[in-house]
């Protein structure tokens, strides 16, 4: 099994070092969300196996997906309507592009490739607008339209700091669903970024966060709808990839 990750930056999925739009494990610098993926997969596999440490991981940036976006589908443009809610097409097109990159990777590594697409629910592309559920469904539909079954949406609500904050705040893991209602903006009165930094006494660099995910967090204790949806989706594709769950018909 092989992992293909896409995210937004160093403090979520990670980046290529030196900077590049795509890279394999040797130049990939994983971020806290990549370690979350890795640890959860490890737990789903029933045996100790880190895809990151065994170099079975590749990364593509958002810019890579933009430059490798898929051709428009039959219709010249897709209209918003009852079946297509607002603020979703960005997620849909990202998923389509990643699905295609993952299919190419599958041939290259001759193995099942699980593709994880990380995007904040309340990130730059939607700035607080739109509905988390619609965005997640759009990603699933994007994977589906490219006939790719091993795609996983990773959309923290409102953003990645929320999942981490749940685990490191006072009374960790308690009442975390409320964090999902906060704004993802970094310019608000008490932004999540600052709350996370305060909870960690300022030790919130990407490497601090990586260490915390690997050593101090029990991922199975985080009870937040956006996290559980991601966890369940990942569990399902791991089961499909290992053959314990039948591949769904698309």
């Amino acid at each position: 099994m092989y992992l293909l990750l896409s995210g937004e930056g160093l403090t979520d999925i990670g980046v290529c070092t030196p900077a590049s739009d795509s890279c394999d494990a040797d130049t990939f610098q994983p971020g806290p969300m990549a370690w979350i993926v890795d640890q959860l997969m490890d737990s789903f596999l029933d045996y100790d196996f880190s895809h990151i440490q065994t170099m079975r991981v590749s990364f593509v940036s958002e810019h890579f997906l933009a430059t490798h976006k898929q051709r428009p589908q039959k219709k010249s443009m897709s209209l918003r309507g009852k079946k297509k809610p607002a603020e979703t097409k960005y997620y849909y097109e990202n998923a389509r592009a990643l699905a295609t990159a993952a299919k190419d990777k599958t041939i290259e590594v001759d193995d099942n490739v699980i593709a994880v697409l990380f995007r904040d629910a309340d990130g730059t592309a939607s700035a607080g607008r739109g509905n988390w559920r619609d965005k997640r469904i759009s990603m699933i539909n994007g994977f589906k339209v490219e006939e790719f079954v091993l795609g996983v949406p990773m959309i923290p609500k409102p953003k990645s700091e929320a999942w981490l904050l749940c685990a490191v705040k006072d009374n960790p893991y308690q009442g975390c669903e409320n964090i999902e209602q906060e704004s993802g903006s970094d310019k608000g009165t008490n932004p999540l970024k600052r709350q996370l930094s305060n909870a960690l006494a300022g030790n919130d660099s990407a490497s601090d966060l990586n260490k915390i995910v690997q050593e101090n967090i029990d991922l199975h204790e985080i009870q937040m709808p956006s996290f559980e949806a991601f966890k369940n989706d990942l569990n399902k594709v791991v089961a499909i990839a290992t053959g314990t769950l039948q591949e769904p018909k698309i």
Binding site: L79, A86, K89, Y90, A97, A125, A127, G128, R129, S185
Partner: peptide, 29 residues
């Protein structure tokens, strides 16, 4: 947000995909 979406879709698709009633908040920010 609009610039980001334009990387993935046509200008009209960005427009129709965006919840315009709340776009002013992002501009204010």
């Amino acid at each position: 947000s609009q610039a980001k979406k334009l990387q993935f879709m046509g200008p009209g698709e960005v427009f129709i995909d965006t919840d315009l009633t709340h776009l002013f908040r992002e501009i204010a920010e």
